[in-house]
Design a binder for these strands. Structure first.
Lengths: 210, 210, 210, 210
DNA sequence: GATGAATGAGGATTCATTCAT
DNA sequence: TATGAATGAATCCTCATTCAT
């Protein structure tokens, strides 16, 4: 069941080639032929040999990208405490991925879009799971009075969509300041989630010292 | 130059079939063959007969969807005055499209995503133009003190992405309350744009009478 | 059996459009669609209505070109007497057609080439008939001592091919002097046909030293 | 870069099939489907697998024919010395190709004609280059007094066209004596190029009365 | 294990022709 | 007489996948 060393190496090689092709040429154009050529393989047969099918390869590509994203984002999020700080960290670190791993991100965006919604959605499922968990966190924060009384699901969805949009923009326009955009987007949602009573009495914002 | 009656009818028929196929099967799967079958046409040649090529058909599909969207959104936006009310109307009416024209919206989302970024993006261009204009409006509102001092571009991008995400979610999950989601999303950004000095003085909230 | 007036007019109109399309776009690209558009007709059905098929239209095109060619060449040839003068007139007038009727000639060349040799060869037959007759003329001239003792068929074939080649060149290169080329080609064959006894003297073979 | 053995074999096989199909059915009818069937291949996809496109296959066909032609003609031409002997060798060896390699020649003629003048004429270019060089040779010979003072370009064009015409005729009519026709054609142009001073004496020009 | 050859379905598009008005 | 709508075969080409070696 375990993979041979060369087998793993080959798979990795192909996955990387796929990531680059998808990032460069777009998901629709990412045929086995292109990927094979990019990977320096002489035939597409190689890819079919190592991957059960296109879905399989795609799954691996997504897994790789998610691995990279998680490795970047998780520590940054967990370094913070409290829902608002963590939301901010989530948004910022996610946007910053565009600078840290542009190829992977570009490929991810392409896949997200090109996949056709029906696709087994192995990724969509993962994404949905994350969002469901986030929704739960939001509700908890609301119960604790740290967030206002808005619709948690809409917030989570909006955050996700906004991040994606900013990511796309940042990936496309090299003149955009990634870090600044990340901060701005985090600020934006920070303003959106704070309880509005915030300014009804003399009290401190989260993170403020007494 | 003018189109025959049946010609126009056929074109409309094909465009509608295309919209449905794209909405159902996804952009990638929307081949002439599928569209022709869905439209009850005997051959794909018919489509080529009425449309110069796939681009042409696609253009028409997008134009149709934009027409529908504009007809729905514009009056609702123009009925309001002031940047915040209009932003709210923009967001709400856009999300509500998911209930008013679900097929068209679904198709639009598919096209937006599946098109591959390379295509000159005849639509992407339109969308970008709108966003540029919105950016300008935001800056004006900021100069007038109606909006806080955030990055206009990031806001506009975030709004666009958030709407799209909510649209997708609402389209997929029939249990979602479209109107409520629309309102919630509008609220969210309304909170995000208001000047924070709001609570620095003895004041009324926007919309309050003196 | 006789054609109506409008019928003839329509046919002529279509034939002329066909000539221009073939001359401009080449035989291979000369579809009914192009011809119809060039003729200002709204559908290709018109062409099928007036012509039994593509062959029929083609036949008419060829006939028209031949009519034009004959009208130009025949008087010029018949104005001369004697085989050499007539051969010269034949060659010169044929080449000059490139200046007098460039569209028709260009179309003819295209058809000659593009038709595929199998084609019913309605034209090839006519051309062959002319050449057979010319062959006969040559033999007569040879019997009369006006031409040398060469192979008549080869001469006739060579003349035909040479004219065609010069025609093509002249049609393509607007800088070529048509009249001069015509004269030169006629001279060339005039030298080739004259009896060699003309210079009956102690002479060396090619390559021999003096 | 280097081709596999079977790859080369397949390519050759396909090229040969293409040559035969073109020779038999004509250039216009030489579709991938026909060629595949003739080559015993199961699908046209095979051809696309081995050739980048129709142009690519065509290029190979032309290259093959030119290789064959060159291999036959060049030694025969270079065996001679002096412009007239070489011109004769050029003409004779070219015509004789019809007997030596009838299929290839037939295909070549078809391609030459059917290609549509638009195609950059990768072959037409080669042919033009040869003719330009020949023109240069002719002028040199004229300067040396070995040829008469005719228009070099017209001569070269005429030679080319005459050869082609004789080739076509010889290919079509199996009763024609190829070698004799070749000799006759060479003789014809030999007479046409010799300096008229050959017979420099007090005597009448063609057309003059005694 | 690894490879390149082969497959056949499916892609868009163009074409000449037919047919009901 | 005229038209334009419809047809369906044929065009080249790309694709993911299979298979024998």
């Amino acid at each position: 069941m375990g993979r041979t060393f060369t087998e793993s190496a080959r798979r990795r090689q192909i996955v990387e080639a796929a990531i680059e092709v998808i990032a460069d040429a777009g998901y629709a154009k990412a045929s086995f032929a292109r990927i094979a050529k990019h990977a320096g393989l002489s035939s597409t047969g190689m890819i079919s040999y190592y991957f059960k099918g296109k879905d399989d390869l795609l799954r691996e590509v997504i897994a790789e990208v998610m691995r990279v994203s998680e490795a970047y984002m998780l520590p940054r999020i967990e370094a913070e405490t409290g829902p608002r700080a963590r939301l901010r960290a989530y948004i910022e670190s996610n946007v910053e991925l565009a600078a840290a791993h542009p190829r992977e991100l570009a490929a991810l965006v392409e896949i997200l879009n090109g996949q056709g919604d029906d696709a087994e959605g192995q990724f969509a499922a993962a994404r949905q799971a994350v969002m469901d968990f986030q929704e739960h966190l939001v509700r908890t924060a609301q119960a604790d009075g740290e967030y206002g009384p808005f619709d948690a699901r809409v917030l989570v969805t909006a955050v996700r969509g906004a991040i994606d949009a900013v990511l796309v923009r940042v990936l496309r326009d090299p003149q955009m300041d990634v870090a600044a955009s990340a901060r701005e987007l985090a600020d934006l949602f920070d303003r959106a989630v704070r309880p509005s009573e915030v300014c009804m009495q003399p009290h401190r914002l989260p993170g403020e010292d007494a």
